[in-house]
Every structure is written in structure tokens, then in C-alpha cells.
Design a protein around this nucleic acid. Structure first.
Lengths: 217, 217
DNA sequence: TAGATTGTTAATCGATTAACAATC
DNA sequence: TAGATTGTTAATCGATTAACAATC
């Protein structure tokens, strides 16, 4: 009904790289930056940067550029990185541990409030301050969180492909609104649940296909 | 000069998911599959699947479909997954370990022939059968490989952003033809070196932006 | 033969790029 | 004022989807 026209995904995907650059510029003491400069730095066209920035609602000043603080805030706001996203992480292997240990996502609002694994060997172990809870205990764990008015919005899936659907089902059951899936599977989820797949094999495919094409020249 | 018209990247990125489905079908004892079926399974249009498959050069039979073995082979060939890709991996943190321990990439031809880290605590440790070599010893390590006719084609970068450029420079120095970069940085590389960036923050950005949009309805 | 499916050409859609006016 | 930069409209490009003919 109020079907807001959806914003171009490619633009959204480029925003984090702008943000990184802006934060570096800020750290260097700069206050203003032109999109001509951003474009040069990242090897794109300045029009594209301008269009991308426009979707965040911020505006710049001709001849001057954009205010860095304002722009950083607008991008973070637009991406939802100024709010906390309470999340469960399921699967504390190397990949799961990598996410828990990477501080970048914390500054993007990712707030892990529960860490699960079905491997008994991990039971009770602590990773980056999070005690690993048995996967089967997720439901009761959610209840105790609810009692403290903590609600889980996101599920991060870092289990092997074979277990991913089962994990997704449980996450849906406890009421997450979105799933961030690192397993190479197409998950079946209710329409209302947002799903973003991290495409590692897909990335590798593009890489090796290009290497092969180079070979054939 | 012989600028072969470049193939659509989105199509290349969809091929791995077809491959997964085909291998499952094969494991179930099937020999033939229609793209109508693939499309249904993955929630896409069948024309798209047909176009995507066409770029691999394989052809199907009307009313019947595609031969699964033939199709698997054609996709793997097209992606370069039927050949070994000798690679160095730099950065044996959780992310690097995750890649080393994930068998999927091995079946895609990824052949790790050297694992490096500058952390002295890791020196001499073994991860998935690979002894961690000090980063500074890479050059001499390459020489011993060359003596055995082993040539490194790819560098996998799983170090923090702050170290990524330095690692990339060294990899270029030893002559890799491509770089698979997991660090959130735009690397400066010679034109001739292929670079594929894994976009984790970019994926998170799309996710949280959609969650935010849902909030605002 | 009828129907399902492939393969291909044409139409549509959306994103990128070009052109240019507005502005500090 | 001149020049650099933003903001916007138009043109181009490429990918997706629709339409349909070919075929087993």
C-alpha cells in the first residue's frame, strides 16, 4: 500500500566504503570533503558518489563539499548503524568466532546477546565474553532475556550448510525479524523475515572465472 | 584488442547455487534436470536460469532438460573449479582458520600451498595440516616452492584492514595473479592483478538498512 | 499429436553515465 | 567574476523479463 520505492541495492552496498573513507578523513582532522575527492580515492565517478550520498538525505554545498560529521551521521542513520541490533549467533566455529571477535560490526550496531552451539565440547566455554549456550536451550534462554526486556531481532547463522535450515527454523520460532546467513544454502523462511546471505563461494566463483579468462587470452 | 565481451557478473554469481542443487540432485540418483525445476527450487524465473546456463556453453534437450553430469562439469569448467588454484593465505586468525577448515573451497580447486602470519605466537603452529610460516619469510618460502615447480597464483588476505595493503604488496612482489581480499580496504594493485573483495560490511549494510525500512512502515 | 521444455529475439526495467544548470 | 562543486534531468548501457518459435 505505502510501497515506498525501494532504494538501489548497489548504492546501499557502496555506502560502507564511503563511511570508512570519511572516518579516516575525520581522524586526520578534516571537516569537509567533496565527492570528487571520494570518487578519486575509490576509483569511481563523482556523479555516482553524489547520487549514492543523496539517498541518505544529506546535502552538500557547491564549491565546498559535504560536512564530514553530518555525512557520517546520515550514512549511519540510513544504514541503521546508529541503533543497536540485538542478535543471536549460532555456530561457534572459526567463522562464528571471527564475527564475535571482529569489532567492526559492534560499531555498526551489532549487539550479540546470545551465542549458541550444539557441540557439547563448547558448552560453557567463553568467546569474546559470551558464554556458549547449548542450541537446544535457546527457547528458555530467550525467555530469561524477555524478562529483562531484551528482544532479539537478528539471527546470525554460522553453522555448516547441513544444519542451517534447522537453525533458521528455530530462530524464526523465537521471533527474529531478520537472518544473516553465512551457510551456503537457500533458506526457507516466512515472507516477513528479512534474509541476507553472505556469498563466499559466489565471490570465489567470480575470482576464479576471471583468472580462467585471463589464461585464455 | 581481443576484448572478449565480458560475461554478466550476476550470472556468474548465480552459478554456484545451481551447482549445489545439481550435486544434491545427483546424490539423489537423478540424471537429468530441467531449468524449470531449478528455477522453482531457487525462487527465480526459468528464463534466467536458462540464460545463465547458456554462458557455460552447455545445451539441454527440449522436453527433457539438462544432463546433470554434463552440466556440473560445464559449470565447474567455466568457473575454473576443475583446475587447482595454488594459493597463499595470509592471516591465521579466526577468519583465516575458517577458510582453511572449510572443505568447500578445496572442492572448488583452492589449493593452499603456504600459510603466513606475523604473530610470533603462531609461528610453527599447524592449522589444518599447514604449518604457519612467519610473514617475513615469504620470499624465501616462495623460492623453495619454485624449486619444486610449485607456483603461487592467488593470495588470500585475512589480516586486519591496517595490514592488508602491506600484505597485498608482498603478494604482488612474489607474483600472484589474483588476490582474494577479506579485509575492509580498497587495495592498490597493478592493473594486471585480479582483485576480488569479500564484502561483509556491505552485506550487513543491506541487512540493517532493510530492517530499518521495515521499522518505518 | 499434444505438451513440456529449450533457445532466442524483443521489450522492459533499473542502474550508470553524460550533460548541464544552479550555486557558493 | 571565474572556477569548482553540487544537484538534476536526459541518454546510455546492461540485465531481467516477456513473448514466442523450435524441438523432442
Amino acid at each position: 500500500m505505502f510501497n515506498a520505492k525501494s532504494l538501489p541495492v548497489p548504492s546501499i552496498q557502496r555506502l560502507p566504503s564511503y563511511l570508512r573513507l570519511l572516518e579516516e578523513a575525520k581522524a586526520k582532522g578534516k571537516h569537509v570533503v567533496s565527492c570528487t575527492h571520494i570518487a578519486e580515492e575509490l576509483g569511481q565517478l563523482s556523479v555516482q558518489v553524489r547520487k549514492d550520498l543523496a539517498i541518505t538525505g544529506v546535502s552538500g554545498r557547491p564549491k565546498v563539499g559535504y560536512n564530514i560529521d553530518e555525512l557520517i551521521n546520515a550514512i549511519r542513520d540510513f544504514l541503521g548503524w546508529n541503533q543497536q541490533t540485538n542478535a543471536f549467533l549460532v555456530g561457534v566455529g572459526n567463522l562464528g568466532s571471527a564475527i564475535l571477535n571482529y569489532d567492526g560490526f559492534v560499531t555498526h550496531g551489532l549487539n550479540i546477546v546470545g551465542v549458541f552451539d550444539s557441540n557439547p565440547a563448547l558448552r560453557g566455554k567463553t568467546v569474546k565474553g559470551h558464554t556458549v549456550v547449548p542450541f537446544d536451550d535457546m527457547l528458555e534462554y530467550v525467555e530469561t532475556l524477555k524478562e529483562n526486556d531484551v528482544f532479539v531481532k537478528l539471527g546470525v547463522i554460522t553453522v555448516p550448510a547441513s544444519a542451517a535450515q534447522e537453525v533458521a527454523d528455530k530462530l524464526v520460532q523465537i521471533g527474529v525479524r531478520a537472518v544473516w546467513n553465512y551457510a551456503p544454502t537457500v533458506l526457507e523462511l516466512p515472507e516477513s523475515v528479512i534474509c541476507e546471505n553472505v556469498k563466499l563461494s559466489e565471490s570465489f566463483a567470480v575470482l576464479t572465472n576471471r583468472m580462467r579468462n585471463q589464461d585464455r587470452r
